[in-house]
Design a protein around this nucleic acid. Sequence first.
DNA 1: CGATATTTTGACATACCTCAATGGCGGTGG
DNA 2: CCACCGCCATTGAGGTATGTCAAAATATCG
Lengths: 241, 241
Amino acid sequence: MITENFLKGRRRRELTDFEAGQLEASVDAVRDLPARATIVTAGEVVRESTLLLAGTMCRYMDARDGQRQLVALHVPGDFVDLHGFPLQRLDHDVATISACRVATMPHERLTEVTERWPHLARLLWFSTLLDAAMHREWIFRIGRLNALARIAHILCETHARLQAIGQTDGGTFEFPLTQQDLGETCGLTSVHVNRMLARLRADGMVRLANRTATIDDLPALRRLGEFDDAYLYLEDSLRTP
Amino acid sequence: MITENFLKGRRRRELTDFEAGQLEASVDAVRDLPARATIVTAGEVVRESTLLLAGTMCRYMDARDGQRQLVALHVPGDFVDLHGFPLQRLDHDVATISACRVATMPHERLTEVTERWPHLARLLWFSTLLDAAMHREWIFRIGRLNALARIAHILCETHARLQAIGQTDGGTFEFPLTQQDLGETCGLTSVHVNRMLARLRADGMVRLANRTATIDDLPALRRLGEFDDAYLYLEDSLRTP
DNA sequence: CGATATTTTGACATACCTCAATGGCGGTGG
DNA sequence: CCACCGCCATTGAGGTATGTCAAAATATCG
């Protein structure tokens, strides 16, 4: 089921079977993408939107000196470039991190569907505002937390999001980011990320290896990262107080 | 005209007179707020949305130790809490910086209007995605630029946004943020902001005084802050290449 | 199995923070 | 209208988290 993970585990997800069907019927292609492939470039006009079915993707911006800043990470169920539907063009690049499977929907079709079904339109709008809420949390993370806490925070976030779509096994989940990537999401160098990860490992909080993260002490990690999942708008049953 | 500045100067602003009228008719109150007043608290259920008519507002989040991180600044024409319409509750606080005038619209009314007029709905959606685009730029600014460039960047952004609504006089515009506030938007301490502002002044780029900013060398400031206004989605006539 | 990307480690540099004190400006009340 | 008070800006000295550069060790991929 293509829309299986869309808004899964979110509060107010009232996506009816009918609406899910409307979305499915809007899909014009399902494709497999290799790791490290760019699918949208900043400034380019976007004519379709991409729903991530499997794998990890990211959105990023480049500084003049070529340094990269990630502005979002995406997990299955996310529309990675739905912002391009109302905006028409994107201000950033979108790329895969791991190999991915995606479904695409033409914008014309989304226009029809949203004009016809205002409630579905509101759900799509809602999903883009979840991105915005995560953006805000990232501003907070980078602006106010130190390196150790930033890393703790993004790991908690990813764990919570994957848990919501049933892709965790206790504290273990796929995490295909390199330490370089992690640095680019946290505003740090890969060298410093490496040292901080060593500390988290030594303190018995998390281990990263083989593109897999294992959280050994979630409460401690959440405390350290000042992580409160309210901004993810999850169902109460998925939240940890 | 209450909606005068809404999406003013934005590419694809096709807000018709009729649509503007529908929005105006949705207003249930126009109010004046004092400076430094909080109007929405994180977690609270939001039942109306607020259009800023005059003054400067902000959205922010607090760290455990009480440090504050601004996540958005708002100028006239912005819906400061429209995210609360699809999200129902907000993950951050919303407050005034200067004294402000605002118009409020009940969510029930917005639901009616957007269900009836899908095109207007798309414009409202668009406006929330402008916020998201600015959020991304803030992530980039804080994650990748040094202190001097961060300050240059936010000043360029504010100048461009105020210029779009006709509230600049050449390089001069109202800027009611204290150096403390500026630090909270850039992830810096007020002491360091002070030193950086002194440098920008000495280099003949900007002066801040009396809640007023004066940009003396915009090209240099843009270069320094790596500022490219593409993410503001302005009409071509308002852009500087 | 070689080639390449990623992680790890060390030594050193620096941008930014912290603490603390002083000075200035604006707003308020008498 | 002046004087005071409080917020805000400014300056200095010293500390620290994080960056830079470089090399070695290890994992991954074809």
